[in-house]
Design a protein around this nucleic acid. Structure first.
Lengths: 355, 355
DNA sequence: TTGAAAGCGCTAACAC
DNA sequence: GTGTTAGCGCTTTCAA
């Protein structure tokens, strides 16, 4: 560990006080041009690098934010995290990623006092194991932005799309194609299944509006939103006496799992069964067939989350919690529209390089 | 920001010196049982939480490691990062994720002096934009573990699978199925394309051993290893006068892109064209058809990387660089074996929960 | 085994 | 504008 050059060394060389060096380095208070040039010269000469550890202690800030997601290898969260990292970097912040595996205890850690012991100034949180009510029991002055379906209680910001509307639109898309036995895969009728329940609500609403009764046996619950959940739920649906002619899946992964089962059973998509997903992950764009999906504006969610969090971090007075609705849209693809939907432009195909 | 309880407060309450409190808190030096109980009582009473920022400054360590990957939304890196985060947490380390977008300058930052200015004790690095030679120009005493295809120069550890062998085996698998026009997608015949070149080497080796000449027009270069690269390269191959009857893709994403094009052209996999991928990402297990792939032992890679890095961080004397070969295996699936390969056990299908 | 005290290197309140 | 200086809260050397 090479003994580093310190602020003091620079100050000595430049013949100024450390205060001035600090000002120059941080671009703070007004410093005369002559002064700043002199200091800069000394900085360059010595190759001075500020010690972040010391700066952190003195300033009480770490310059890091934590992103807490259930699973990093779930494409939706990976894409979201990627966007947050990009947005944070622009603001000079580093990002600490934490996976909770959906474990409620682990998630609580990040809301507790103990979090101050960790190394971040604020948290962007995508809860899975915690219900809305659990969010109330948190360290009051932890800058917090929550993503997903929980709702702000005034003490933090919440960003999410309108799940009920999005789900209603997705279901209406299927009903609009003339499908009459539309299944839903992904309901979670228990305390922490709030996200899933909103989607089920939208699914029911679409039926209601269309005057079509919901067949309860077509609403399938799954413990998670993974491929395997979709695969097994689809298998179950196909074993019904009257199988569905369409499925609304609560995630793209579920949809991919469903496609997998459909292919294994030799059924055609969308001719035999039309499939809609949710999240617009890249996988679902290249699957066979590509999946019609609800696309949340992930970039906007990531950027807004960082922006709001930094606002909280930077404010000494409490910032009132905001409810932020991110836009979404339904992207029709071949899994409901058939071949005609294949949109070449979406592939971003570039000419191959020859060897 | 609630003014926190400090070590001093605890010391005062317990009537001991701060040194003793520190020892107790950190489980350091021998402390008499009576003492530790007394201190612990004071700690509990005050709800003392050590300030990590201060600890870092005093100790010169941050307790964080950086994981530098090109893209977090690439499933392979997401899965790898997930494994590293898990392994690091067990050791009490946090993980900072950084994406470089494959940008060489950005990658260099992490090898430079400036890295000491950042907040981590060591780096697990998966280079993309940097070539082997660039790794030489790094801050000598930065604990570093490199993943992928670069080779250790003695100053860091390197962990990777044997790409040449894995690629040879993958190609031999196709040749063994009787395919005679085996294409390769993903070569990168330039300075930073070392990973790709090793795979091409294995591809050629398989042909050599089988006494089958390589058709140069079947070796396609791609700028990256994404779905779009695979899709366009496959399109190009199918437009050849004599299209291939099999393709070895340098990543699973490339393979998924190739499948996409094959499906769009109405070709059957594997009857018309057999496809092999590389990385064993989850997507490729659930695709239609599932993709035969080279599976590196990602868990082992992640755990070993953390273990080696912490060893470096903890050592005051230079640790000699190790070359570590992680195991790999070829997983045959339907994209080469046809329906027969569908391995139900692999899906981890659980019974659906009914509504 | 425990105490006293000197930093770690920087920030920022206060004075000039 | 610029200098002086007192911390930030912990670790750790040195004595006792």
């Amino acid at each position: 560990m090479t003994r580093g050059v310190t602020l003091r060394d620079v100050a000595a060389l430049a013949g100024v006080s450390s205060r001035t060096v600090s000002n120059v380095v941080n671009g703070y208070a007004p410093v005369s041009e002559a002064m700043r040039a002199r200091v800069q010269k000394a900085v360059d000469e010595l190759g001075y690098q500020p010690n972040v550890l010391a700066r952190n202690l003195a300033s009480g800030r770490s310059g890091q934010i934590a992103v807490v997601v259930p699973y990093l290898d779930t494409p939706y969260f990976a894409e979201l995290s990627q966007g947050i990292i990009r947005a944070a970097r622009v603001q000079g912040y580093n990002v600490l990623i934490d996976q909770t595996d959906g474990d409620a205890e682990h998630e609580k850690l990040f809301l507790s006092r103990r979090s101050q012991q960790l190394l971040f100034d604020g948290v962007i949180f995508s809860p899975l194991g915690l219900a809305q009510s659990d969010l109330g029991e948190r360290d009051a002055d932890l800058p917090l932005v929550v993503l997903g379906e929980r709702v702000s209680d005034g003490g933090f910001d919440h960003i999410g799309i309108d799940d009920v509307t999005a789900s209603r639109e997705a279901t209406e898309h299927l009903l609009g194609l003339g499908r009459r036995r539309v299944a839903a895969i992904g309901d979670q009728p228990y305390r922490t299944g709030e996200a899933a329940q909103l989607r089920t609500q939208g699914y029911r609403l679409a039926h209601e509006r269309a005057g079509i009764p919901v067949r309860e046996e077509l609403v399938i619950s799954t413990p998670r939103f993974n491929r395997s959940d979709g695969a097994s739920a689809m298998a179950h649906l196909l074993d019904l006496e009257e199988p569905p002619d369409a499925v609304f899946c609560y995630s793209d992964l579920v949809a991919l799992g469903a496609l997998h089962t459909l292919a294994a059973r030799g059924l055609r998509v969308p001719e035999d069964v039309a499939v809609v997903g949710y999240d617009d992950i890249e996988d679902a764009r290249y699957s066979n067939p590509p999946v019609t999906t609800v696309s949340p504006d992930k970039k906007m969610i990531a950027e807004t989350a960082v922006e709001r969090l930094l606002k909280r971090i930077g404010s000494s007075t409490p910032v009132p919690g905001m409810e932020i609705r991110a836009p979404h849209r339904l992207i029709p693809r071949a899994s409901t529209m058939g071949r005609q939907a294949t949109d070449a432009a979406e592939w971003a195909v570039s000419p191959p390089h020859l060897h």
